Amino acid sequence: MQGQGQDGRQGQVALNGGVQFLGDADRILAHTIDMAIDFTSAHLLNQAKMDAAVTGRLDVTGPYHNLLLRGDLSIAPLNMQSDTFLWDGAPQLNIVSSDVNDINQLIAKPFYWPDGNWDVTLLVNNRANLYGQGISAELTGELALTDNLYAPGLSGRFNLVRGSYTGLGRVFALQSGSVQIQNNQLVLDIQGEHVARMSLNNQLQMVPIQLRITGNQDALSLQLSSDTNLDQDELLAQLLFGKIVSDLDVLQAFQLASVVNKLRTGDTGFDPIGATRESFALDSLVVDTETNEEGNLQLNVSAGKYINDYLYLEVEQDVGSEQEFRGSLQFKVTPNTNLELYTQGAGGEFDRNGVELNWSWDY
């Protein structure tokens, strides 16, 4: 028996082997199978949120009701995308388990269905890409597919190669971590870092802030830490507003409380600014308030969006004052150097344009 096919994207599947029919009056479908299936960059999975190409050989051998499917398959590339995982930006894997009716149907499967066991190793070497709201990561790892043909067991581990997480208005460089898989359970432990410019002891300093994401798909936690004596609330205030907690105005304090509550419970309550930020897919939305000499309330609204890991677009406008509109595009040249292109003006006339090279050094 021979056969071959193509997937329409230069991938190929070739089948070679045979079936031996045995005249056993005591058994139905008593024939044995000895077959090899070769995959060459075959896109066996091509969906909107997951795309995978397989290369390798799968051997199918044994009696029809006691088959063994064995092989080593390399998956490259493997692209996964999801809409929600962590709040404010990371993907979520939705695991759906079989209900009782499905299990009963498998137990009472028709006699003409084949049966057997899996013994397959799935290798992913530096080509597993995970995308989602805020997360972009490259993974490498190995999965083992075992147990019954209709109730397989899946176990393995993925390690982080590189990646980034955009959240809290900042980009964190993912440095290390792992995702362990055991059937429908995923256990995550991922670490990242963002170097923030903070005012400490009346000095402007570059402070590394560590991010750690731990837990499983049902309960994830996000923790911030640094070498300073600042607690997590203070670090959040610095990341979101560039201020210490005691310097926040009423609106900023309300936003910070919503963020802290969401970190701890997953629920923010009523958060109009957070809802607006998420609706417009912004990375940063900050509202400052102040009172002018006449006692009138003024608002300063700034919104920012990371175009990629190196480009940041920001616009700023005061409401209730005659302050100018300002827009800027910041390019991260090095970890300590930013090139900023800006334009600003009042009354719709952008008459002040320029380029700034900002450099800082932590000492």
Rank of each mutant, 00 (worst) to 15 (best):
residue 350 F to G: 02
residue 320 G to I: 10
residue 326 R to A: 03
residue 28 I to Y: 09
residue 201 N to H: 03
residue 250 V to R: 12
residue 93 L to S: 04
residue 25 A to T: 13
residue 228 T to W: 07
residue 272 P to K: 12
residue 232 Q to L: 12
residue 29 L to M: 11
residue 177 G to M: 11
residue 346 A to G: 08
residue 341 L to P: 06
residue 81 Q to I: 04
residue 308 N to P: 03
residue 250 V to W: 13
residue 43 H to Q: 15
residue 41 S to W: 05
residue 93 L to M: 12
residue 114 P to E: 07
residue 31 H to E: 07
residue 140 T to P: 05
residue 128 A to Y: 09
residue 341 L to V: 15
residue 162 R to K: 15
residue 179 V to M: 08
residue 269 G to M: 05
residue 309 D to G: 01
residue 312 Y to D: 05
residue 6 Q to M: 12
residue 251 L to K: 05
residue 304 G to S: 06
residue 274 G to F: 00
residue 3 G to F: 07
residue 101 N to M: 13
residue 62 G to T: 04
residue 324 E to V: 11
residue 263 L to I: 13
residue 362 D to Y: 04
residue 346 A to M: 05
residue 293 E to W: 10
residue 152 P to K: 03
residue 139 L to P: 10
residue 199 S to G: 12
residue 195 V to N: 09
residue 185 Q to L: 07
residue 301 V to H: 09
residue 77 P to M: 12
residue 172 F to E: 03
residue 280 F to P: 03
residue 66 N to T: 08
residue 37 I to F: 08
residue 144 A to P: 00
residue 264 R to N: 14
residue 241 F to S: 03
residue 325 F to D: 10
residue 352 R to P: 00
residue 357 L to G: 02
residue 312 Y to G: 00
residue 317 Q to F: 01
residue 89 G to T: 06
residue 147 D to W: 00
residue 18 G to C: 01
residue 27 R to M: 09
residue 147 D to K: 10
residue 97 S to P: 06
residue 86 L to P: 05
residue 266 G to S: 00
residue 122 L to H: 06
residue 115 D to G: 13
residue 78 L to K: 05
residue 169 G to N: 10
residue 308 N to G: 12
residue 55 T to V: 01
residue 232 Q to P: 03
residue 152 P to H: 00
residue 144 A to T: 10
residue 233 D to E: 14
residue 347 G to P: 10
